[in-house]
């Protein structure tokens, strides 16, 4: 999660609804917002819709932002909420009792961000959403569960399931 430092003057201009400043903010943060949406939804068109909705919402509600220094994290929250809203239908949480557990062998390999990203995108939608919210965005299970409309225990079990799947996917990707 790359933190983007924004100039306070730019934020003030964005609050004043200056279109140039808005564009500048968009240029600085568009990758962050789009990547989050795309990784959660694994769909370009839906991610673009989320991007558009997020920026419109940000520019309209920025006046109500109490702490302008927390603008980027506020934008990420809006993007995550919009992505959940957009992909609500595809987020189906599998029953984990029926799924065969992967072998608990030791992981002896190195992987980078590119490889992890591929593995994340191959996850089932429900597990991917939980992993993105808890492991990548840093939400506590309680809040992630609330956002997704599931119980806290479901969120925890889905995260464990996602991690096990990632382990095996990364291994197969490394072997390929």
């Amino acid at each position: 999660m790359n933190q983007i430092q924004l100039d306070s003057e730019l934020i003030e201009q964005v609050i004043a609804q200056d279109r140039k400043a808005q564009f500048q903010l968009f240029e600085l943060t568009k990758r962050m917002v789009y990547s989050l949406a795309f990784r959660m939804l694994d769909d370009e068109d839906m991610a673009h819709d989320v991007l558009q909705d997020t920026y419109v919402q940000v520019f309209q509600q920025i006046r109500n932002l109490k702490h302008p220094e927390a603008l980027t994290s506020w934008m990420r929250t809006i993007a995550a909420r919009n992505a959940i809203k957009k992909g609500k239908r595809q987020f189906q949480f599998e029953k984990l009792d029926q799924i065969q557990e992967a072998s608990e062998d030791q992981f002896e390999a190195w992987f980078d961000g590119e490889l992890l990203d591929q593995a994340i995108r191959s996850l089932p939608p429900g597990a991917r959403a939980v992993f993105m919210l808890v492991a990548v965005e840093g939400y506590p299970h309680q809040e992630a569960a609330k956002l997704l409309g599931v119980s806290e225990s479901t969120s925890k079990s889905q995260l464990n399931y996602a991690k096990k799947l990632l382990k095996t996917r990364i291994k197969t990707l490394l072997q390929a």
């Binding site: 999660m1 790359n2 568009k30 990758r31 962050m32 789009y34 990547s35 961000g113 992890l116 492991a135």
Partner: peptide, 10 residues
Amino acid sequence: VSLDLPNYAP
């Protein structure tokens, strides 16, 4: 690594 995921451009 999850903090260093690649970014996509719209």
